[in-house]
């Protein structure tokens, strides 16, 4: 019973993170903000959902596989976010300033 409660708490946390990710992705206009919103779910969201699933299943085999998934995601997704932001900075060096001016007006 305690197991179920803890697992569902983690699952709810993951769902909340994914919800904020989707809302932010559609609400924000500038690409850096979008990257920030989208990077959230790739690390924290997947980690909490994996923890919930690991608690629910509980066999060592599944836990090791989920751990590998989480480690892989943690290693790769921040790199992806960094590369996207890097590309944006290289391509449009003044885009951020323009956006700020539009935002103030």
């Amino acid at each position: 019973m305690i197991r179920l409660v803890v697992a569902s708490l983690f699952l709810l946390l993951g769902l909340f993170v994914f919800f904020t990710e989707v809302v932010g992705f559609f609400k924000f206009k500038y690409i850096m903000m979008r990257i920030h919103a989208a990077g959230l779910g790739d690390t924290l969201g997947i980690m909490s959902i994996a923890i919930a699933v690991a608690i629910l299943i509980g066999t060592p085999n599944a836990i090791i596989k989920l751990l590998l998934v989480v480690v892989f995601m943690m290693l790769t997704n921040p790199v992806l976010t960094h590369l996207l932001a890097n590309m944006e900075v290289k391509l449009h060096q003044n885009a951020g300033n323009e956006y700020k001016e539009e935002d103030r007006a």
Binding site: F72, L75, V79, H82
Partner: peptide, 12 residues
């Protein structure tokens, strides 16, 4: 190659 990308890539 990007430094962060190559460091991470060497691991993976």
């Amino acid at each position: 190659p990007d430094l962060i990308l190559s460091t991470c890539g060497k691991l993976i």
